[in-house]
């Protein structure tokens, strides 16, 4: 039977990498515009980060240090799996420390730590089209982007206000990039939207199943859509992290028992660990109280 075990550095063949690299350069040149690319079938399922993996595989080199997070955490199973994939096929150094990483692949979060110029943030994107749930047809949404016709999006947000008294979009909250394209920031909570604005780091977005790559260059305006009387605002948590006492960070709710007992802890696990190492502590409930 055929010899099955000979894969190129970072899995993708060179021709595929060139194709993706060309798409990335055009994506950077047209901030927020979704560049179609010939997404390959990856050895992991569609919807599980194939776009992000293809982007990372096309940019990664032997000097890179890779961090992979899912829900802000390095130890979630899919993050572990993707990190192990790159260790295997590209033999690259990996880290959980945001500061050390040169490439951070993420699903659903932006690290709390401010990113720097030497870093690239690669987002895994399920549905890249911000207008998709308003208009399912690609042929139509493409026209809307071409004509900069985003009225529908404002109507949708306004209907929210009429019905619920507020904009009820809590994640994948649409943004306008460099004053032109409306873009889906991927399903990050809107809490993270402000971090995209004028970031020092390059942000790349890969959607494998939907075959799109897009980008936000560093120092680029990323504005969350809103209304004068209903300005954009991010989530606020009433309590600090139970483990490290951090405020102004995104928290996960951990259910402790079946009597309503719960605690809130940092979603960004590296940020939380680093703070605890620095001696910060939170009011972690005692084991007895939780039981």
């Amino acid at each position: 039977m055929t010899d099955l075990a000979s894969y190129n550095f970072a899995y993708l063949d060179e021709q595929t990498k060139r194709m993706i690299r060309r798409a990335i350069l055009k994506a950077i040149a047209i901030p927020g515009y979704q560049v179609p690319f010939a997404s390959r079938e990856m050895p992991m399922p569609y919807g599980w980060g194939t776009g992000g993996v293809q982007v990372t595989a096309s940019i990664i080199g032997p000097d890179d240090i890779l961090k992979v997070i899912d829900q802000g955490a390095d130890d979630t199973t899919n993050a572990v799996s993707i990190r192990a994939f790159f260790e295997k096929v590209a033999n690259v150094a990996v880290t959980t420390h945001t500061k050390e990483a040169t490439i951070i692949q993420t699903r659903h979060r932006i690290p709390e730590q401010k990113l720097g110029e030497g870093q690239v943030l690669v987002y895994q994107v399920p549905i890249p089209e911000p207008l998709r749930f308003l208009e399912p047809r690609e042929t139509e949404t493409r026209k809307m982007h071409a004509l900069e016709e985003y009225g529908l999006m404002h109507v949708k947000l306004y209907e929210d206000i009429a019905r619920n008294g507020r904009i009820s979009t809590t994640y994948a909250y649409p943004v306008k990039v460099a004053g032109r394209y409306v873009m889906d920031p991927s399903p990050t909570p809107k809490f993270d939207n402000p971090k995209m604005h004028m970031s020092d780091a390059l942000q790349l977005f890969g959607a494998g199943r939907e075959k799109r790559i897009y980008a936000v260059p560093p120092y680029t305006d990323v504005v969350s859509l809103d209304f004068e009387d209903h300005p954009f605002e991010i989530q606020k948590f009433e309590q600090p992290c139970a483990l490290c006492g951090a405020r102004g960070v995104y928290l996960d709710e951990v259910v402790l028992d079946d009597k309503g007992g719960r605690m809130f802890v940092c979603s960004d696990t590296d940020h939380c660990e680093e703070r605890r190492e620095e001696g910060h502590t939170g009011e972690m409930p005692s084991q007895e109280a939780a039981e």
Binding site: P45, H108, R209
Partner: peptide, 19 residues
Amino acid sequence: GFVEHLKLPHYVDFQAELA
């Protein structure tokens, strides 16, 4: 892939909806 990806953790977004 896309149907089954729903079993991946989504708790960050769910937290936002919950709140």
